[in-house]
């Protein structure tokens, strides 16, 4: 566990010692802020539905940008050889990097709290429970995208390739329940179940269903396991 924390801390200091964290955070907040303020006062509803609609969309770009370097840079610079010949397990490297990406996403979400505070001031008896559920849902979506981003970063030593690969997978998962009318009926149930938005929209309405939680956790588990397997390819005989 200590080793995971060690990798996590190294990763966090890399984020905040370079411009990556600041630039992506600023862009993330600007876009969400623009979406929110441009319609919040027009809709006249006491909830954060606008935010909960825009954040998962912005995440599709924001998260691959955060994670694209995490393993690809180590592969590229050869530091992966240094890291994996320390007494550190491959899964500890992947988890450390995953948690640091989730933490950065958490920081991003924390900075959207002013929207929530605005709502408390101007709204009329907002449903606080539903809003907290929404934030939990956003964190789950973010963590799930981060696991996909880590996988995209593991398979390449080029950050652009990593970005595009994770972007495509994330975008596909986002798109699945938007294209249901175009697919044959026997597929639509499966596609809907695979889609991120379907599970997120339940949570953001304030309904915590174990099926939705299990969906996010199992996708995270799947991609993180896959990433560890990718690191182990070098050990193939």
């Amino acid at each position: 566990m200590n080793t995971i924390r060690l990798i996590y801390r190294k990763e966090m200091s890399t984020y905040f010692n370079s411009a990556v964290a600041y630039i992506t955070l600023i862009i993330f907040l600007l876009i969400n802020g623009w979406f929110f303020t441009s319609s919040f006062f027009l809709v006249g509803q006491s909830d954060l539905r606008i935010l909960f609609n825009s954040v998962p969309l912005v995440f599709i770009f924001f998260i691959p940008a955060i994670t694209m370097g995490s393993l690809a840079r180590e592969n590229h610079a050869g530091t992966m050889e240094f890291l994996t010949t320390l007494p550190v397990d491959d899964y500890q490297i992947v988890l450390g990097k995953f948690f640091s990406a989730v933490a950065l996403i958490g920081v991003g979400l924390l900075f959207t709290l002013p929207h929530f505070i605005t709502l408390l001031f101007v709204g009329t008896s907002p449903d606080i429970g539903a809003i907290l559920c929404g934030y939990l849902g956003l964190l789950l979506v973010g963590a799930m995208y981060a696991s996909i981003g880590i996988f995209g970063s593991a398979v390449s030593n080029n950050q652009i390739t990593s970005f595009l690969l994770s972007f495509i997978v994330i975008f596909a998962l986002y798109l699945f329940d938007k294209i249901l009318i175009f697919v044959p009926p026997f597929l639509s149930g499966i596609l809907q179940f695979l889609s991120t938005d379907y599970h997120f929209s339940n949570i953001s309405r304030g309904v915590i269903d174990s099926r939705n939680i299990i969906y996010f956790l199992s996708v995270i588990f799947f991609f993180l396991t896959l990433s560890v397997r990718v690191l182990e390819i070098r050990k193939w005989r």
Partner: peptide, 23 residues
């Protein structure tokens, strides 16, 4: 390792501290 891979953005102290902590 060959070509001595290091983290360019770290300083020497942090780098040694990291590798020592891993051990």
């Amino acid at each position: 390792p060959e070509n001595n891979p290091l983290y360019p953005e770290m300083n020497v102290y942090d780098f040694l501290k990291f590798s020592a902590a891993a051990r």
